[in-house]
Simulated assay, not measured.
Amino acid sequence: MKILLSSALALTLLASPLLAHAQDACAPGASVDTRLAAALARPDRPDNQTALDPVRESEDRFLLSWIKPGDHVLDLGAGGGYSSMLLSAAVCGGSVDSQNPAQWDNAFKQGPARAAMAQARPNIHLVQSDFDKVPVPAKPYDAIFIGTIYHDTYNEPGANGVAMDKALNATLKPGGLVIVVDHATARGAGTTQTSSLHRIDKQVVLDDFKAAGFELLADSDALANPADDHTLKVFDPAIRGHTDRFALVFKKPE
């Protein structure tokens, strides 16, 4: 005898393994690997994001090692929203503010994709502001992620890294974190290659955050690539996705 299921019940049963996996990822003590796998397995992720997973895996793992369920996170310079969607799954019942400057949304026509992302993920809220004018949220951020765009902030008119970092400091709770990943230059290059090669000297970032009142919590080589000689633009096919990147974590004093 055949048993006919309603379409709603069938969909529920089909989705249950994924739901269980997501619940496991949000359980206390879930490993980074479990949480990352669940975040990447979400079926609403667009193809242009899933295509990036192989080259983003190390960065994703580093990021999620500092983010916990329930966190309120700012994704600064979120672009098309790859990290915003990753974070929205990783924070579970928490929330993500996905920030872009207006000129980014307009110049790169990212508005429709970002609106669709926010509609698909209710815990993602869109913020459109200058990098140094992010509104202070009603609930301070637990963490801020600045993923390979710190150098871009130096390409904005009147850029001042220290002033921007001080403004971000005001949006964080005491003890809150800022996680910075970016493409490295040769030592001593400063900010001379932020536009030409889209790279920045790690020392500039260290100095900026120290001057803004942050403490350095971690300086990781998890994303380092000694084979990158720092001479190529980060979009060059010979190095794209495999640049030498520094990974820093700063803490707002408690």
Rank of each mutant, 00 (worst) to 15 (best):
R187I: 15
A186L: 15
I239L: 05
D97T: 09
L5T: 12
L172K: 06
A170V: 02
G158K: 11
D236N: 11
P43Y: 10
P17A: 10
A170Y: 01
M117F: 14
D152F: 09
D201H: 06
H230V: 01
I124G: 04
H125W: 08
D219S: 12
G93S: 11
N169E: 03
P237M: 14
T185Q: 05
E215N: 14
D142K: 11
H198S: 09
G81A: 10
A167N: 02
L168R: 10
A113S: 14
M85H: 03
A90Y: 15
T34Q: 15
A224K: 08
L86E: 08
L223A: 03
L177G: 05
V234H: 00
W104M: 14
S6D: 14
V91P: 04
D229V: 06
P237D: 06
S83D: 03
E57V: 10
S196Y: 03
A41W: 05
G79W: 03
I239P: 02
L74T: 02
S84G: 12
R42L: 06
H198K: 10
R56N: 11
D208K: 06
P43M: 04
E156T: 10
A90K: 05
A167V: 01
L76H: 11
L14H: 09
D132T: 02
D228M: 04
L14Y: 07
R45G: 08
F235S: 14
Y150F: 14
A211Q: 13
F214H: 00
I3Y: 07
V91K: 03
Q110T: 08
F209N: 04
A138M: 11
L52I: 07
P157A: 13
K133G: 12
R199N: 01
D207Y: 01
D182F: 01
S6L: 11
A120V: 05
L87V: 13
H230C: 07
R121L: 13
F250W: 00
A218Q: 12
E59W: 08
W104P: 04
K109H: 15
P226K: 02
A39V: 05
G81F: 03
P69E: 15
I200S: 00
E254L: 12
A167K: 05
K166V: 11
R240W: 09
A247H: 14
G94P: 06
D244R: 06
A38R: 10
Y154L: 06
C26Y: 01
